[in-house]
Design a protein around this nucleic acid. Structure first.
Length: 457
RNA sequence: UCCUCAGUAGCUCAAUGGCAGAGCAUCCGGCUGUUAACCGGAGGGUUGUAGGUUCGAGUCCUACCUGAGGAGCCA
């Protein structure tokens, strides 16, 4: 009712005509001028004849000011009873004020309510604290909060940086299939899907396919969603996550280790350059990111085992680590805690790694592979390797791992028709975003996370 | 799959085995510079579900459900 009456008011229409539309982030360019911003009511404080509505528009926050005697009674009344997250078009004069967050205020002259949140069914996410379960249930609204919006901006910047990095180096993006006939690595649990009369699976990695496109185009990369049906319930796991995977013909292990450290450093520098204010909103300790630079320390698996055993002897690790196993989460945290930049651990035992990895010619018990561990306990963000080159050895591996030979016929062909040494790696975007933003949990790094117990919203 | 913890108002949480409460949110009133504003008032409950012990259960016991984060596995 209030809304309907107000929409017909001539006052705001007249103001509206000459006020340019802008965003909150750009308000500084319009100091002293009338502008219109379009957004949502973030919060409202009042003090008698004085109102302080805070608006957000996706680019930032601005505080509006209304003195009762200075504005039309309909405008004052409309703002006074405006509900949180109602959508609005606001017209007013931009004024610099030290008391305002962001440095600028808007002297509100007119407000058009686009859609009013009902009084009896208010916006559920208040400026007060909420629990994880409640926020996840309202993820479609939670993304409007400043912190979540900043995280999504950083994620976008990381993805953009990633594309720029590979493009500048002559990589071609090739998109692998998401529906696949069989396991890529034969280890992880896959999501089965009905494919007409056949069984198919959602991809757990595009790697095998981009090995093929690398033989066509030389340097390629892929970026897309991957799926793991593992029943993992930790802050580092999603069932659906996005992975970027470069693959390079004629590259060996050392080449992709260099590529990996350049890649990570490039991304961190880009985020620091372009999304610093978002990192500040998130509360990230930026000095930790500023230390990231090449070269990253390179530690062989053998050396890592030695570190872990010494750590156990000093009482810093609960369990004694024995040569031959894969590093557990506490082991990775321990090793990465000794450095202030990402650590590269290379040459793991062949037995704990995927079937397609090339054994080290100097010690066939270990594979030419590398894991990159992010600092501050964020764990593995990159896994890569040099791929097995020999047709015969690869075929033997496929048999050893009980994989269906028929399904890998095309993959074996790559070793038959002009096989070359080649290598690549995969980086989980969510873990990289979590580390760069300093988040507790990867579920905040993607707009709509898919976890073991959650498909909604 | 295993281990641990938690489910009470829309939200965040209290309540020794003895009357189910507070703050925030919502609505009403007050306040001309507020910063998660503040002050006063009102409405708001199948204490996750099903059993059991007890004169009496939000509280103790059993099972189940849901969620959380740790292991394993992985990026």
């Amino acid at each position: 009712m209030r809304n309907a009456i107000f929409r017909k008011d001539k006052f705001w229409k007249r103001q509206d005509m000459d006020a340019p539309v802008t965003t909150i982030a750009e308000l500084g360019k319009y100091e002293g001028q009338d502008v219109m911003i379009r957004g949502w009511l973030y919060n409202l404080r009042e003090s008698g004849k004085l109102l302080f509505p805070i608006f957000r528009d996706g680019s930032g926050l601005v505080q509006g000011v209304l003195f009762q005697k200075n504005v039309a009674p309909e405008v004052f009344d409309a703002v006074k009873h405006l509900t949180q997250e109602s959508s609005v078009k606001v017209t007013g004069k931009v004024r610099a004020d030290k008391r305002a967050p962001g440095g600028y205020e808007l002297d509100v002259a007119a407000v058009e309510i686009v859609q009013r949140v009902p009084d009896n069914d208010p916006y559920p996410i208040t400026p007060k604290e909420h629990g994880v379960d409640f926020l996840m249930e309202h993820r479609h609204l939670w993304v409007r909060s400043q912190r979540q919006a900043s995280i999504l901006r950083v994620r976008s910047e990381i993805e953009k940086a990633m594309h720029d990095f590979f493009d500048e180096r002559g990589f071609i993006r090739t998109d692998p299939p998401i529906l696949t006939p069989a396991a890529c690595e034969g280890t992880s649990t896959l999501f089965p899907v009905e494919y007409f009369e056949e069984q198919a699976y959602l991809t757990q990695s595009g790697q095998l396919y981009i090995e093929a496109t690398a033989m066509a185009l030389g340097k390629v990369y892929s970026f897309g969603p991957t799926f793991r049906a593992e029943k993992s319930k930790t802050r580092r796991h999603l069932t659906e996550f996005w992975m970027v995977e470069p693959e390079v013909a004629f590259a060996e292990l050392d080449d992709i280790m260099k590529l990996a450290e350049d890649f990570i450093t490039f991304i961190v520098m880009r985020v620091l350059a372009r999304r610093r204010s978002d990192l500040e909103t998130i509360g990230r300790d930026i000095s930790k990111l500023e230390k990231i630079d090449t070269p990253f320390p390179r530690i062989s698996y053998d050396e890592a085992v030695k570190m872990l055993q010494e750590g156990h002897a000093k009482g810093e690790l609960e369990n004694r680590f024995e040569w031959g196993g894969d590093l557990g989460s506490p082991d990775e945290t321990y090793i990465s805690s000794k450095f202030d930049r990402p650590v590269m651990i290379h040459r793991y035992p062949t037995e704990v790694k995927a079937f397609y990895m090339e054994p080290d010619p100097e010690n066939p018990k270990v594979a030419l592979c590398v894991d990159v561990l992010a600092p501050e306990g964020y764990g593995e963000v990159i896994g890569g390797s040099q791929r097995m080159g020999s047709y015969e050895k690869l075929l033997a591996r496929i048999h050893e791992h009980d994989l269906p030979e028929e399904a890998f016929k095309w993959y074996l062909d790559l070793r038959k028709f002009g096989g070359v040494p080649h290598a690549g790696f995969g980086m989980g975007i969510e873990r990289a975003v979590a580390w760069i933003c300093g988040l507790e949990h990867v579920r905040e790094t993607i707009a709509f996370p898919r976890t073991l117990n959650r498909m909604y919203p």
